[in-house]
């Protein structure tokens, strides 16, 4: 911590010269910003150069063209998007009613919820998948004679591995919990719901006409965080032997380095685009209300 002291110190130069900030503060800030810009932009620019730099032609966008024709691209991307959609729906359907209940009628459940939704942060994904793979091995080992075995086979269907949805929901819980908690905190649910109930609205009506429209930005950020998480999730999928987009990138990288970097840039841009869409949806909601 001692190292922190000099870093924050120069900023308070103000008392020595009350008129404006001293020059050294501005210089210091400029240096920090430039160093940060270099560190964060260079890898992105270099990656782009790497993908368009062809030893023979000099400049070529072939690597980007190849993405779409590469084997398994469409399939793995679709799988990732499908998993993301299923995860978002599941996690919201599970958490939203529970969090509303905690706010409205069972405040004593709050600490329990908080612990439940923080646990996945303490448990690194790799240890989680170690536990899951152990459980999945029980299938053939102990359960092959019981009807439960069929369930075990079904959740591991490579075309749509439900087990990944279950794992992703658990991993997304902390982020969704925090996003929704912030959204609910900002809108004073209790008053809103009581007012709606007082007008005679039914519970489903309250949910879909009152709570959800007012919670749009919270829901949007929860959905975005889940989406980003599922699209980037590698550990669980790789160790359980499935091939969504994030695993596919690695598989393809052995064959073509430029292609794999191009795909990485593509996935980053995709994430940015989705963030942009969701955040503008969120702000439009806020300015509209």
């Amino acid at each position: 911590m001692a190292a922190l002291t000099p870093t924050v110190l120069p900023d308070v130069g103000a008392p020595a010269a009350p008129t404006g900030r001293p020059r050294r503060v501005r210089v210091w800030r400029g240096i920090v910003l430039v160093v940060a810009a270099v560190y964060f932009l260079v890898p992105l620019l270099a990656s782009f150069v790497f993908t368009v730099n062809d030893p023979v032609q000099g400049f070529s966008l072939d690597a980007y063209g190849e993405i779409f024709s590469a084997e398994g691209f469409g399939q793995s991307l679709l799988l990732s998007l499908g998993l993301a959609a299923a995860t978002i729906v599941t996690v919201l359907v599970l958490t939203l009613p529970a969090m509303l209940a905690v706010r409205l009628s069972a405040p004593r459940l709050r600490p329990v919820m908080e612990i439940l939704c923080t646990l996945p942060l303490v448990v690194p994904p790799i240890t989680f998948v170690a536990g899951i793979s152990t459980v999945l091995r029980w299938g053939p080992d102990y359960l092959s004679t019981t009807p439960l075995y069929q369930t075990f086979i079904a959740v591991q269907n490579p075309a749509f591995p439900v087990v990944l949805v279950i794992a992703d929901v658990v991993l997304a819980l902390p982020f969704v919990y925090r996003a929704l908690d912030a959204g609910l905190g900002a809108m004073d649910v209790r008053t809103l719901v009581e007012a709606a109930r007082n007008c005679g609205a039914s519970w489903p009506h309250v949910m879909f006409r009152v709570v959800i429209p007012n919670l749009k930005s919270g829901l949007a950020s929860a959905s975005f965080l889940t989406l980003a998480l599922v699209l980037g999730e590698y550990t669980v999928a790789r160790l359980l032997g499935f091939q969504p987009f994030s695993v596919w990138i690695v598989t393809i990288s052995g064959a073509n380095a430029a292609l794999s970097v191009a795909v990485s840039i593509f996935s980053l841009l995709l994430t940015w685009l989705l963030l942009l869409v969701l955040s503008t949806a969120g702000t439009r909601q806020r300015s509209g209300s």
């Binding site: 599970l94 009613p97 529970a98 509303l100 209940a101 905690v102 409205l104 459940l109 919820m113």
Partner: peptide, 8 residues
């Protein structure tokens, strides 16, 4: 309230 939190 309890039942709504139960599934999670």
């Amino acid at each position: 309230g309890w039942t709504a939190a139960l599934p999670l």
